[in-house]
Design a protein around this nucleic acid. Sequence first.
DNA 1: CTAGGTGCAAAGACTTTGCATTTAT
DNA 2: ATAAATGCAAAGTCTTTGCACCTAG
Lengths: 157, 157
Amino acid sequence: MNPMDTITQQFTAHNYKLTSQREAIVKVLLDNEKDHLSVEEVYMLVKGSYPQLGLATVYRTLELLCELHLVEKMNFGDGVSRYDLRSEDHDHMHHHLICDSCGKVAEIKDDWLAELEEKLEKEYGFSVTDHRLDFKGTYRICTGSGCKRPKEGQAIS
Amino acid sequence: MNPMDTITQQFTAHNYKLTSQREAIVKVLLDNEKDHLSVEEVYMLVKGSYPQLGLATVYRTLELLCELHLVEKMNFGDGVSRYDLRSEDHDHMHHHLICDSCGKVAEIKDDWLAELEEKLEKEYGFSVTDHRLDFKGTYRICTGSGCKRPKEGQAIS
DNA sequence: CTAGGTGCAAAGACTTTGCATTTAT
DNA sequence: ATAAATGCAAAGTCTTTGCACCTAG
């Protein structure tokens, strides 16, 4: 089944109405799966094909998608929330590489933390339901261009 | 040398004035080293012994401490920035365990990521300057009380 | 003495909410 | 038909900034 159907099906399954706005927003998320879009970015992108869209609807829809565990809300310390589509299997095991010079956020799809999570379970009595792993640094070959995020503190935040 | 002196020394070394407000703020951070305080929390704590303190000064001082790499700014997805004193050696290699039921944030002081950082360097051409690792989950023995953060989304954000 | 710091209040940035209108089911 | 969703604008948070006054060096 294609990802769009999977998602819209979730809507109806939970008795949420499938409005054209919601469809358009989900479509933008799918088309930009690699991008960790902010609310403003989603809004602008959807507005292209749907000019009468309201910003509040984007906030409400993203919140809803979060509630349905279809997207993940995160924060890279630039003052805005960013949203990341979860893969169908809900594994969402990926990590981020944040480039210091251009601000680009890349994803790594492996799960490198399985061992650590076992260790936490055994040695700390802590059972993990979710995790987050971000690295900041620089690519040996960084164009330095394509900077999306103007200012950025020194900490990953 | 005691931590307070180490920090105040950094101020003078960088030609920043050592005001009583700054001293009071640093003292509160030291006294609550384990706590990831928010600006508001720091403000309230300092206000106890220094009632005329302004909130903007807390923001400005924490920003300054960040700039001097004495504290780390971070965001656990509850809408406010939190600040964490860096250990003297500037290694700041610690991870967080965030309890789903009580919201408590615990720290783990080990560095579990050295191997992964090497891998990134070699296989991805990415050299790491900083990282962040948070786990969400529950402690087998969680009191369920002491919740500091009222609402929390499902994602680590 | 004087550059820099402080407190206050106003302004900004991002997000949420109230309400009349519209729409999916 | 009707409960839910939308768009707009207003209100809320958290954070930053402008400015007159104050203070460490």
